[in-house]
Design a binder for these strands. Structure first.
Length: 805
DNA sequence: CACTCATTCCTTTTT
DNA sequence: GGAATGAGTG
């Protein structure tokens, strides 16, 4: 292997090496790129050229003569992986110098490894054609599991049980370990559910997101052969966004990195920023990055603190705020960019007013020459996007909401994908349940319940029962079915078989027999499934606009399948038996549609919201703060800077989460290159109920001299008194500014609060109104059932109206 | 068995 | 404000 001395002689004068991997790098950046052997931690502040360093470093490794297939780069999202791959390719030239390089997400890598090795590694109940269950699938399976145990979903909400199990999985506790550690009633019950859930999951031939990591960690730990095969192949490991890794991911990384070769330390390079760790709730363990040097002794640490993205004012504000966190590795943020404008802060009346403010601010930015695509709106929760969307739509401003998962959550797409999943894996009961009577084909709940019962008793997938019904009749199963239902089921099974025959490798099918894949076969299968399942006819029969839209979406699914096949690169498969064949370009293509279908479904399931961010669209981008990480925009508007929204309400119960909320805010601020707007609203409606809001503490943490604040939250202010706009160019019209805010006096949720009305208070409980005074600072005297009479200021009292009866 | 209308819970963030 | 159940009718 190359040493630093040799490299130094090759790249003696980086800055003049135009076009080379060291061109234009700062000293610390170059140091990170130059580092090839042994553990390396790059602490990369926002806008510090992190991606640049990573991609250059990979290119550098390859230029040093390391075979690309020995390099594994891991990210969290497909988008990050795609971007990295593209940039490395660009650096190395399209000539195939990067062939065999593995750049992928943790989850996708695990899926591939498991499919390749599951049988060898003897993982209980895991078949190589397993389906990956997304959150919706998990939820419906969990519901069934809880009901199957005769527990109430009221006492054991599937969501929270799932999150407890997910927590356990992220910490690598299986059901048995979990059971051994929890002896209280709730813990024991969850353990029982955990066990049953895993069993149901395996029966359905499925794994959930967490399982992908857990099972891979376990496989690598317990199976020396697999472990060695992976280590043998990947000598250089790189992990992006390392601050977001959880315990399972840390174990996988450590096992892959191994002990290094011949007593030398492992070549693991991790890049991240503890200040941008925002996935603690998903098990991300910030100590992974804080203690990297402990886990990998002798690690070189390089801090990239210089920011090349934002103005001084933005950087200084972000720095001042994040300094308040105590659990961090301090690095000084600085920039030699221009000072820039002050941060705009506007206090608004309510969320509608806020949306108008954002719109006007964007128009002003556009007047200054910024394009729509250079602007973005960030918010803490998805629910906040709606009002902004409405405002932009009405104003005719083009926008896109970054919700990559949304497309695949549409009913029609879920249906079509569920059919495909049943083709790929007939045991997938969750998908089968979804499609067996969609569109309605006469297989009703009564019949299904009987058959599900049989399946549950025998512990086999429903599909097996259906099949045995088809060959042996209902009597053999010990159930009675109407002839109508039996016919319908028979027909359904035969349709499935037809599709599977097409998909299966068949020695009689010409090209397939030669081991060649015919491009278009997957798209053809998707098209066939949509047509022959009756989905197409079902939506064609409907005449509403949404039905037309649904047909269009289904057509799009066919297109997406076609695109997938066309861009599918079998050489990029991380688990090729012989990586050298990838380098040589002589790998074997997949031989049948089923293989392609599996790859496609995997891709479809492992999408992230951030994956859909496409600045080429020429539109304003709307997204959650979480999705914003890693991106940058000329002008950023952050809305909902309020207590209980941006530090989220949950912080009240879990104070240690406050620092993560602050990091979230930090991430948002540091996305802005030139201009930043932060807004808070005095009133905001949650689920239709307006609530009095308090400005976020984070606003107060921004140094006053960097902020230009404009309070427009006055009830009737901000109409046309000249103070409406705090910035240079207010828009010419006042169109919607007139939508006066409803006076909060003596009103709750738009309904008048009168004597004798029942209300609920978050602390005091239920009470009856005895008297109301209106006007500014309206009050009500309320006799509470439990705590007696209190006089409350309506503005602050977050009361809820209760209907009598 | 299929479809329509009312009632319930909900939401933090996502691979 | 909306999705996801459940009751009731054709």
């Amino acid at each position: 292997m190359h040493t630093e001395v040799e490299l130094a002689s090759t790249y003696g004068n980086p800055r003049e090496d135009d076009g080379g991997v060291f061109a234009g790098l700062t000293e610390p950046q170059a140091r990170a790129v130059r580092h090839t052997e042994g553990p390396l931690l790059v602490l990369a502040g926002p806008g510090s050229g992190k991606t640049r360093v990573i991609t250059r470093r990979i290119a550098h490794l390859v230029q040093c003569g390391i075979p690309p297939w020995q390099i594994l780069a891991l990210t969290f999202t497909n988008k990050a992986a795609a971007e990295m791959r593209e940039r490395v390719l660009h650096l190395l030239g399209e000539g195939g110098a990067a062939r065999g390089l593995t750049v992928t997400t943790f989850h996708a890598l695990c899926a591939r490894l498991l499919r390749r090795w599951a049988e060898v590694a003897n993982l209980p109940g895991l078949k190589p054609d397993f389906a990956i269950f997304d959150s919706a699938d998990q939820l419906s399976l969990m519901k069934k599991t809880i009901e199957g145990l005769n527990l109430s979903t009221g006492n054991w909400p599937p969501r929270s049980v799932l999150s407890r199990i997910s927590e356990a999985k992220n910490d690598l506790q299986d059901a048995e370990t979990f059971a051994a550690r929890h002896h209280d009633f709730a813990g024991r019950t969850v353990a029982k559910i955990y066990q049953a859930y895993q069993k149901a999951l395996r029966t359905a031939g499925g794994v959930d997101f967490d399982d992908l990591l857990v099972l891979t960690a376990r496989m690598l730990r317990e199976n020396a052969a697999v472990r060695e095969a992976c280590r043998e192949r990947w000598q250089y490991l790189l992990i992006d966004e390392y601050q977001d890794t959880n315990r399972a991911q840390f174990v996988i990384a450590s096992l892959l990195a191994g002990e290094g070769q011949q007593g030398r330390p492992p070549n693991i390079c991790v890049v991240g920023d503890p200040d941008q760790s925002i996935y603690g709730w998903r098990g991300a363990d910030i100590t992974n990055i804080l203690d990297f040097e402990k886990a990998f002794p002798g690690a070189e640490v390089i801090a990239l603190g210089e920011n090349f993205r934002s103005t001084q004012k933005i950087i200084n504000a972000a720095d001042a705020m994040i300094r308040r966190n105590t659990r961090r590795k301090h690095k000084t943020l600085f920039t030699s960019n221009p000072p820039g404008e002050k941060i705009d802060a506007v206090s608004c009346r309510d969320e509608h007013h806020e949306a108008q403010i954002v719109l006007e601010w964007f128009r002003a930015r556009r007047a200054e020459g910024l394009a729509w695509k250079d602007m973005a709106v960030f918010y803490r929760t998805n629910a906040l996007s709606r009002v902004v969307e409405d405002e932009l739509r009405n104003a005719g401003v083009p926008y896109v909401v970054a919700r990559g998962t949304a497309y695949f959550q549409r009913e029609e797409i879920k249906n079509a994908v569920a059919y495909l999943r049943v083709v790929a894996n007939p045991a997938d009961d969750v998908s089968l349940d979804r499609v067996i009577n969609t569109p309605a084909r006469g297989i009703g709940d009564t019949s299904l319940d009987k058959l599900r019962n049989v399946a549950a008793i025998r512990g086999v997938p429903l599909a097996d029962v259906l099949r045995s019904l088809e060959s042996n009749g209902a009597a053999a199963l010990g159930v009675e079915l109407t002839a109508r239902a039996q016919n319908a089921i028979g027909k359904f099974i035969r349709t499935l078989d037809d599709w599977r025959d097409v998909a299966k490798p068949s020695p009689f099918m010409g090209a397939a027999a030669q081991g060649q894949y015919e491009t278009g076969a997957l798209a053809e299968l998707v098209e066939r499934v949509i047509r022959e399942s009756g989905l197409e006819a079902m939506y064609k029969a409907g005449k509403t606009e949404s039905d037309e839209e649904r047909l269009a979406n289904l057509a799009e699914l066919v297109t997406s399948a076609r695109e997938f096949e066309e861009t599918f690169d079998p050489g990029a498969d991380p688990v090729l038996t012989d990586p050298r064949s990838a380098a040589a370009g002589t790998y074997a293509a997949p031989t049948n549609v089923l293989t392609m279908l599996h790859a496609y479904l995997e891709r479809v399931t492992l999408v992230a919201d951030a994956d859909s961010v496409d600045p080429a669209q020429g539109a304003v981008t709307l997204m959650t703060l979480h999705a914003a990480k890693g991106l940058e925009f000329g002008a950023v508007a952050m809305v909902g800077l309020e207590e209980r929204v941006l530090p989220h309400a949950r912080v009240a119960e879990m104070p240690d989460q406050l620092e993560e909320e602050r990091r979230l805010c930090f991430v948002g601020i540091t996305r802005a290159m030139q201009r930043l707007l932060v807004t808070d609203a005095r009133y905001r409606s949650f689920r239709g109920v307006p609530e009095r809001q308090i400005a976020s503490r984070f606003l107060a943490e921004l140094p006053a001299d960097l902020v230009s604040h404009s309070d427009q939250s006055d009830e009737f202010g901000g109409d046309d008194n000249g103070h409406r706009s705090a910035w240079d160019k207010p828009s010419a019209t006042i169109e919607s500014t007139r939508r006066a805010h409803k006076a909060p006096q003596a009103r709750i949720g738009g309904r008048a609060l009168a004597e004798g009305v029942l209300v609920r208070h978050p602390q005091f409980g239920i009470g009856r109104v005895e008297a109301v005074t209106g006007g500014q600072g309206a009050r009500a005297r309320i006799r509470f059932r439990d705590v007696g009479v209190k006089t409350l200021v309506l503005e602050y009292a977050r009361l809820e109206l209760i209907d009598e009866g």
